[in-house]
Design a protein around this nucleic acid. Structure first.
Lengths: 223, 223
DNA sequence: CAGTATACTTTGATTATTCAAAATTGGAAG
DNA sequence: CTTCCAATTTTGAATAATCAAAGTATACTG
């Protein structure tokens, strides 16, 4: 059985690979993500390599092996189904479930996982819009535009938030920029790095201005 | 924060004290319950004593301190609320939830616990009839008779099963001797160590014979 | 190409939890 | 009392995960 620590390393490596499309994750980056010293990351990764869960090349970095990716996807499945359970059944706040799930994901068996999946009706995305891997370890590849790249003056639906920071999510909630919300980007100012948008369901119908970096964290598609 | 291991030691010590009313639990007994070697139990208990969670007297045994008992009750509360969630919401099998909860109990926060408690409507007992400690750490002291001691030829309601073994619980389920079931003890034969009873809702209305030891694991009260 | 900064790896140590096996002790049996 | 046994405690060692700090390589800079 993989320990909690091993599961977390694999999950982080998987998620890091998403962002930076390069095959190898440098050790410094991993150490940062895991909040450990670089030496710890090196030691741990060498152990993971022993267990054939990752490929490791000194001074280049790590990447997941087939087995490692499979395990990472299982952890992610548990994480995301738990998040959804916490929101939909236990009515927990959207912005808090990530940290809760971070612990629970290591404690639930296949049996409980299946029960959650059944109860929720085989959902395909968690409360942040992150796709839930199947039991077989497949993820539907999403290729969405973001508020930083979608066409101007056309309504789009927010489908995913690429950030789990409670503070950020509370802000998102406040603005009404949650998944399923409909918004329209009115203007982008590259020099000011500003994206100006209007939120559909907002009674006050206020404008909102986000930086390009923040806007890029909202994935959208046609409503 | 108390580790999973510490929580388990405290929980075991608490539960062991229930059975044997003597104040101190001998180390051998604890080592057995924890499935570790005696040396391990001694080491661990000395650490717990350092942390003022137990009182330890060499060659006499351990007992919980006020703080230790408080923590033990918190763990038990988590365990039992999780069991009930698994049965009532996730529809897991009665006989399996104990082992599942054994892991999950260490992973849930106060926030999640409160959400479960609310969702379930502040329940007072888990699926086995075991009382759920309050958030403040109180347990309503139950003083029930058992099938080994209750009056003959009078209907009684099963309210609690003092055993979590999946095999035993499956058998209990099969017989229909689950909590809330109404039964009547027809006869006790001390020499044969046999308790003969009839189950009310059983269509076949069959008799059932249990040993005295097994009968004592069913707590009952007036229906 | 030499010199240095940065990123990475190694080394030596620490904490938590465990085991196996040797040492001890407290009382039971003679 | 002495002897012995069973229950404990002690000792020495192992594993997992971590850190601090020293050493090494890579790449950048002039």
């Amino acid at each position: 059985m993989a320990s909690k620590t091993i599961e977390n390393y694999l999950k982080r490596i998987y998620l890091a690979r998403q962002e930076a499309r390069g095959k190898f994750i440098p050790m410094g980056r991993l150490a940062n993500l895991m909040e450990v010293t670089p030496g710890t990351a090196t030691t741990m990764v060498k152990a993971l390599a022993e267990a054939h869960l990752v490929g490791y090349e000194p001074r280049r970095g790590v990447k997941l092996s087939r087995a490692g990716e499979h395990l990472a996807l299982h952890v992610l499945r548990r994480h995301r189904l738990v998040e959804l359970l916490l929101v939909r059944v236990l009515k927990l706040d959207w912005s808090q479930v990530h940290e809760e799930a971070e612990e629970i994901e290591h404690a639930i068996s296949e049996r409980v996982l299946e029960a959650i999946d059944r109860l929720l009706g085989r959902p395909v995305a968690d409360p942040h819009g992150d796709p839930i891997p199947t039991a077989g370890g497949k993820v539907h590849p999403q290729r969405f535009a973001s508020l930083a790249t979608c066409p101007l003056d056309r309504p789009v639906r927010i489908v995913r938030i690429l950030d789990q920071e409670p503070n950020f999510l509370r802000f998102v909630d406040q603005c009404g920029l949650t998944p399923t919300a409909i918004v329209r980007v009115q203007q982008r100012d590259p020099l000011a790095d500003a994206v100006r948008l209007r939120i559909a369901k907002d009674k006050s119908s206020r404008h909102r201005v986000l930086s390009g970096g923040v806007a890029a964290r909202f994935l959208v598609r046609d409503p």
